[in-house]
Design a binder for these strands. Structure first.
Length: 840
DNA sequence: ACTTAGCATGGAC
DNA sequence: GGTCCATGCTAAG
């Protein structure tokens, strides 16, 4: 039967056909002899695409390579530093591989299986959107396969003349990536952006293609370079170009290749291993794969917050239900709106456009998604016009979210099963987020890693699990549960000042002792010890860290140890007494007892032993609780506020860590309520609980004075510009004997707040009445006002000290009030500094 | 009065 | 300054 050559530029009719490139359908293009020869000889582009744009030079040999068409995609690779390299040069380079790259497990493995075309038909089966596939369900991360994201079922046909929507199309297409997993280790993604003439639906793509004067359509071409033994493009390419696509290729009137490259093959390799066996130990691979993207076009980059971080558990869950290959697509932390009753999940635009079927109408289309249990859900995938753009949402997710028991702050993940193309939606409770994930939910003690989105603030050093800061915003967002009231809700403020009400504050209900229990001295930080009235004080130059609570004990050999509970299996393990444990310590981190480094190994504590230990600690705790119960509940409330503020200050205080001097005294005990140990919420606490004479130590006050002076020196040295000037102004004011006034004011404020009318003070200190405002900015000057609860910690600490001193002065010749005032001046900095000193 | 759908707004990036 | 996106707002049901 006679038909024309697949090459539309040829159109030769013949009865004999030779196999050309592989199309998206999985079939091969039938070419006439001449075209086939040109194709096999690598001259196809020279013959048929010479006038097309997209020609580039090999960075190594200078050879002209046509980039961005289906035929030439295997002829070059992208270079890390930009530019392209022809196959020959690439081969040479690949023969001297980067030693950092692990050997590719699938290198030179048989082609067909690896080249399995991920049929876009799967989309139609998923979405019911019709028999015509729209693309290959690309992954933004697994840029290792070949795909012509030609948008065959043109989603925007209705508004084709709309430049905005054309732009959308461009963006959609250009943000689409193609993938083929196994070859990724040697694959360099070539990401071309073709601007082809015809703009058409797949149905009519074969018809009426004109070369000129047609609205342009951006088409992505992502290429995989296959190496190296078999250079037959046909055998290597995972082309799935639908027959009409040839027309696009051939009708290119403008080609602008945008190149993408993988910064590291190792990440891809790791990822593939992980994906394929689903058992990668760390889940790191998933993290890496997001980072492996080297999109030079920032607009198309998926924000790190959307990088999929599917846990091993999830992978196992997914893979257990199927032998399919799992491709993590993206994830999103549920916002209050997402998890609210409305049941709309706002989808990141790029994710929606890259991974979900294209939709042209706001009504969108139904999208079937499976959960980890295999249950199928049907959501409506749609969008709203928004600021000349679109806002994509998944509607009807509430039942699914509820079935997964997810709430705001938790994370939903979207993956795709290959080859069937199923969309799988997983959920991850915030509290079980992978440890290497930026998102943290546990209120304190999470080790954090940097998410370079810039949206979140993290501690500087999280590598050893020690926290020097808190992912404050994440914490807030994670644990600010869905209470999406429109006005006056916890989310109601534009400034996103998030608060935690009583219920949520359960997470915060740590006693002072508990806080002490989880605070550790900085690692490898040798304290300077000085003695005050016979009591040794360890002074640290670095901020404290938040560690996992442990139970100190003595083992059968008489050595000091501590018991710690594994985050995962909840078994208690023995670790050295001086071990600093991350807040999310697990058995796998048990470097002291390798035989107990697996959760599967038995607990080292018998039940009885555990009960004994726990009962001991419980008694201590009970005693403390009794004390607390006797105190004013509002005061206790405020103490919690103060704790929260303290936690925030650990990160937020805009003092360099080095300037944060921490003290604890060696005689410290769990029940010690001295000013060093407690986190007082106000002066009343001190009045009620000045049990520890240590706090009244003259030497300690002197020491405090010296610390303050030292801090001020540092501060003055470091702060330049306006801040410095302001400081100087305040200092001048002080030197001009304004101190008397300020001192008086402070005293008035202190006494007025702390002594005269406790009730009034309470209301002023904690206007939220049972809520903790975690969004405070303690560094802000106004926060130090008596009415500011966010400045309460500092002020209360100042008050505490003052009360202490006043108390002491009344009974003896205490430290000069002026000295204290000097310490506290100027600008409340002393308060902040002092707060930093109060670390158990 | 309440819910829903869809657009608008504005903070964050 | 553009874009994204969380959520506010309101008309319609």
């Amino acid at each position: 039967m006679s038909k024309t050559c697949f090459n539309s530029n040829c159109k030769e009719a013949s009865d004999k056909w030779r196999r050309g490139w592989r199309c998206r359908t999985g079939e091969y293009a039938d070419l006439c002899d001449g075209c086939a020869s040109a194709y096999e000889e690598g001259n196809f582009c020279e013959m048929f695409h010479l006038n097309a744009s997209g020609w580039r030079c090999c960075e190594s040999c200078g050879k002209q390579i046509h980039c961005g068409c289906i035929v030439s995609f295997h002829m070059f690779i992208l270079l890390d530093a930009g530019g392209i390299e022809c196959l020959s040069c690439a081969k040479n380079n690949i023969l001297t591989p980067n030693p950092a790259w692990p050997p590719p497990p699938h290198f030179l493995s048989s082609e067909p299986e690896r080249m399995k075309d991920i049929s876009t038909r799967n989309w139609s089966t998923i979405t019911g959107s019709g028999p015509i596939p729209w693309r290959q369900a690309p992954s933004l991360f697994n840029g290792s396969s070949i795909q012509f994201d030609s948008q065959p079922r043109m989603a925007f046909g209705d508004d084709i003349s709309d430049g905005i929507d054309r732009f959308r199309i461009c963006e959609r297409l250009s943000s689409s990536f193609l993938e083929k997993k196994e070859e990724s280790s040697f694959g360099r993604l070539i990401y071309g952006k073709l601007r082809s003439g015809p703009f058409e639906t797949v149905e009519d793509r074969n018809a009426g293609l004109s070369k000129e004067g047609q609205p342009n359509l951006s088409v992505n071409v992502s290429h995989l370079r296959s190496f190296p033994k078999n250079d037959s493009p046909t055998s290597k390419l995972n082309l799935a170009a639908a027959p009409p696509f040839r027309n696009e290729i051939n009708d290119i009137d403008q080609v602008s290749a945008t190149l993408l490259q993988q910064p590291s093959l190792s990440t891809l390799v790791g990822k593939q291993v992980c994906i394929h066996n689903g058992m990668d130990s760390s889940g790191e691979a998933q993290v890496c794969n997001g980072k492996s993207r080297g999109d030079v076009r920032g607009r198309n980059q998926l924000l790190p917050r959307y990088w999929p971080r599917i846990t091993d558990k999830e992978l196992q869950q997914i893979s257990s239900a199927s032998n399919s290959v799992i491709t993590p697509l993206f994830e999103k932390m549920l916002s209050a709106s997402d998890a609210g009753r409305i049941g709309r999940l706002v989808l990141p635009k790029k994710c929606a456009e890259a991974y979900f079927p294209p939709i042209s109408q706001p009504e969108g289309l139904p999208l079937k998604v499976h959960d980890l249990k295999g249950k199928e859900w049907s959501f409506q995938f749609r969008f709203w016009p928004n600021n000349n753009s679109r806002m994509y949402v998944l509607e009807g997710i509430t039942p699914c979210i509820q079935s997964m028991e997810l709430q705001a702050g938790d994370v939903v993940t979207f993956s795709r099963l290959e080859p069937e193309g199923k969309l799988v939606m997983g959920g991850r409770k915030a509290s079980t987020a992978p440890p290497d994930q930026g998102y943290k939910a546990t209120l304190i003690g999470d080790k954090t890693s940097g998410d370079d989105s810039g949206k979140y603030k993290f501690g500087e050093d999280a590598t050893n699990g020690h926290v020097k800061g808190f992912a404050k915003k994440e914490i807030l967002e994670n644990k600010s549960v869905v209470r999406s009231k429109r006005k006056n809700s916890i989310f109601g403020l534009k400034s996103k000042r998030l608060r935690i009400d009583n219920e949520e504050m359960m997470e915060l209900k740590l006693t002072c002792n508990q806080v002490q229990g989880i605070m550790r001295s900085p690692p490898e930080n040798v304290p300077s010890v000085f003695v005050v009235e016979g009591c040794e004080i360890e002074e640290f130059e670095d901020a404290p860290i938040i560690g996992r609570p442990t139970i100190p004990a003595i083992d059968c050999f008489g050595e000091k140890i501590q018991w710690v509970e594994c985050e995962v299996c909840l078994k208690w393990r023995k670790v050295p007494a001086n071990a600093l444990l991350p807040s999310r310590w697990t058995c796998s981190e048990n470097i002291w007892g390798l035989d107990r480094s697996l959760c599967s190994t038995a607990q080292q504590l018998s039940t009885q032993q555990l009960e004994d230990i726990l009962s001991t600690t419980t008694e201590v705790s009970k005693k403390k609780n009794i004390t607390e119960q006797n105190s004013d509940p509002v005061v206790a409330q405020e103490r919690l506020d103060a704790l929260a503020n303290l936690a925030i200050q650990v990160e937020e205080v805009d003092l360099p860590a080095s300037s944060q001097t921490k003290m604890k005294h060696a005689g410290h005990k769990l029940d010690c309520t001295c000013i060093i140990c407690i986190q007082p919420s106000d002066g009343n606490d001190l009045k009620q609980k000045q049990i520890c004479d240590f706090a009244n130590s003259e030497s300690l006050k002197h020491r405090f004075s010296s610390l303050m002076e030292r801090f001020e020196k540092k501060q003055l040295t470091k702060e330049a510009g306006s801040a410095c000037q302001k400081l100087q102004v305040d200092n001048d004011a002080y030197l001009n004997n304004d101190i008397g006034k300020s001192s008086l004011n402070r005293e008035e404020a202190s006494q007025g707040a702390c002594l005269d009318d406790p009730d009034e003070r309470k209301s002023s200190v904690s206007p939220l009445k049972g809520q903790i405002d975690l969004n405070i900015q303690p560094e802000r000057e106004e926060d130090l006002s008596p009415d500011s609860d966010s400045g309460a910690m500092k002020r209360l600490l100042v008050d505490s000290v003052e009360n202490n001193l006043m108390h002491h002065r009344s009974s003896s010749s205490g430290v000069s009030r002026d000295l204290l005032d000097k310490q506290m001046q100027p600008d409340g900095i002393g308060g902040a500094s002092f707060s930093n000193c109060i670390v158990p």
